[in-house]
């Protein structure tokens, strides 16, 4: 091999090594929760935000409770996950409740803390350790007037088998939310939000 040939080979080898090192370096960056970001077609935090934003506004503006002056008491009975993914839907209900509380027009029964409230009340009355004048008054909890509940559903479709290098899949989510009057058992308000996304994945990798 000539001297110049050797140099070119060496140069190419170094260049390849640099390219390989740079491409393999781990990186991190902070993303804004408001930024819409999807790696694949599956449900992610951007979807949660979109769902919450899309449902809170109509509940505040167009529901029969929008103009209620007495800050109605609501209990959240959760969102049933009827998709084919393990999705923690309590994240959606937590965010909806937070947004509604911030609006200051509704009050919420803390259903998840019921056992703890009972235990603490029991401790105040029966342990003998709590000063009587500081004990909370019993039987003063507020009963809920409305139930907020919902269902998250999904429909998936994959491209049929054929010769190709990527596989496309389509996923559709719909979240249906409804407000039921506990006294009359009537559905006072209902709305839904839909998200549909197509993604393609490579079939062949290194």
């Amino acid at each position: 091999m000539t001297n110049s040939g050797l140099k070119s080979t060496l140069f190419l080898a170094i260049l390849s090594a640099i390219a390989l090192t740079v491409s393999c370096t781990a990186t991190t960056r902070t993303v804004s929760p408001n930024e819409e970001l999807h790696y694949d077609e599956a449900y992610d935090f951007s979807d949660k935000k979109k769902i919450v934003d899309s449902l809170v506004q109509p509940l505040l503006e167009t529901s029969p409770l929008a103009n209620a002056a007495d800050r109605p008491v609501i209990i959240i009975y959760g969102i049933a996950n009827q998709t084919s993914e393990h999705i923690n839907t309590s994240g959606i209900t937590d965010d909806i409740r937070q947004e509604l509380i911030k609006a200051g027009r509704f009050r919420f029964v803390n259903e998840t803390q019921r056992d703890n409230i009972a235990n603490e009340t029991d401790y105040q009355y029966n342990s003998g350790a709590v000063a009587p004048e500081t004990r909370i008054e019993r039987a003063r909890q507020l009963g809920a007037r409305y139930i907020l509940s919902g269902t998250l559903r999904s429909i998936e479709k994959e491209e049929p088998k054929q010769i190709r290098l990527t596989k496309k899949s389509l996923r559709y989510y719909s979240l249906h939310l409804e407000l039921t009057d506990l006294k009359t058992a009537l559905i006072e308000w209902a709305d839904s939000v839909e998200i549909a996304r197509e993604a393609s994945k490579p079939i062949i990798g290194w």
């Binding site: 596989k167 994945k201 490579p202 079939i203 062949i204 990798g205």
Partner: peptide, 12 residues
């Protein structure tokens, strides 16, 4: 989860 990841055919 691994089954899902293994859908990609590794050339190597």
């Amino acid at each position: 989860g691994l089954i899902e990841k293994q859908e990609v055919i590794s050339i190597s």
